[in-house]
Design a protein around this nucleic acid. Structure first.
Lengths: 192, 192
DNA sequence: GCAAATTAATGATTTATTCAAG
DNA sequence: CTTGAATAAATCATTAATTTGC
């Protein structure tokens, strides 16, 4: 049984750390800076917004079919259908706004978050690409690098971003390891 | 001259689209699904929460030193100092929560957003790695793939995510192609 | 038939590349 | 040239299919 605890043990060994004030640029020296209490961040602080035991069976009752403890998004047929349709329609990297809207709509057919939509497009795009590449190599026929692809690899432009909405643990209610300082990843020992 | 208009011309040719109901899994058949009004998304609808012209010069006045039109984040010495310190402290991929907190703190020394913090760590990590690789190849000395690196490449686990906070165009104000049907996402005209 | 064991899909993250502002 | 920003590729990790032994 691995202990593998907290792979991100940042600053654990960094008692007080005081920044060693270097001569900063005079431009925006409005704040003293001085010591900058790093401990402010560090402290695990028991996740204020999420008391350890309060979600075991919270029936948010949206769509049954989705577990409360929340593992990963499990799209419904409706959702997939719509997403694929959008993909075929040309959507590849939806904007933040679009993601918001799409998420809202798809929410009607099952629990879903913005990130799921975002990831779905990322993955689908990538996997379609792989698939096509394989076909190109093996079959040779079919549009040999057709002009249009609507993907426009290098057209970088629309900014996107999101707001972190983490979710902490609450995975396996069993195996309460005492002092489980955040036992990250309980994962399957059998690997894959 | 490419027309490249709205690479995202989804469903424009999809009048009513009815999803071709396949026999869905009986588990989550709570909603009728039926037609699913796609137009709901598409419609630009003038972004209810964001009237087109109301923010041209909103002086959010935080830290001077940062232009309003805003291009990209320009970290102050203090911010960099702190970030580097944290990096040296072992931080590599801060959690959402951490990012929030870090951002808040760094905000004292200059305008900054969560994504900046996120990107900074991503880039710094990557570039430190490159640098080290170069050194390894050329110099050969210095810890040849030392055991610890605190990075822990394969330890995936802590979820992170954010909420999209887009910002659009305003890059090349020229070349206004007429008939730009549906320039989706009207978002902040001033770009960012 | 059915549940454990495998395998196939695919959701979620991280890393590598690339673009472009300054 | 440096480095913030963004995307694509590579990977990890779960969940559903599918197979297998009883």
């Amino acid at each position: 049984m691995k202990v593998h605890q907290l792979a991100r043990g940042f600053w654990e060994h960094e008692p007080s750390l005081s920044l060693s004030c270097k001569p900063f640029r005079p431009t925006s020296a409005a704040h003293t800076l001085s010591s900058f209490d790093l401990n402010t961040f560090i402290r695990p602080k028991t996740t204020p917004t999420n008391p350890p035991s309060s979600d075991h069976n919270n029936p948010h009752s949206h769509q049954v079919d989705m577990q409360a403890g929340g593992t990963r998004w499990n799209p419904t047929q409706e959702q997939i259908g719509i997403l694929e349709m959008m993909y075929r329609g040309g959507v590849r990297t939806p904007t933040a706004q679009q993601i918001e809207q799409i998420t809202e709509q798809l929410g009607k057919y099952g629990k879903i978050e913005g990130k799921n939509v975002f990831y779905w497009f990322q993955n689908h795009k990538a996997r379609e690409r792989q698939k096509q590449k394989r076909n190109t190599l093996g079959g040779r026929s079919h549009c040999p690098r057709n002009s249009r692809d609507d993907d426009n690899p290098y057209k970088r432009k629309c900014r996107r971003w999101s707001f972190v909405c983490m979710e902490e643990e609450s995975r396996s209610p069993f195996k309460e390891e005492e002092t489980r300082t955040l036992e990250l990843f309980p994962l399957h020992p059998e690997g894959r």
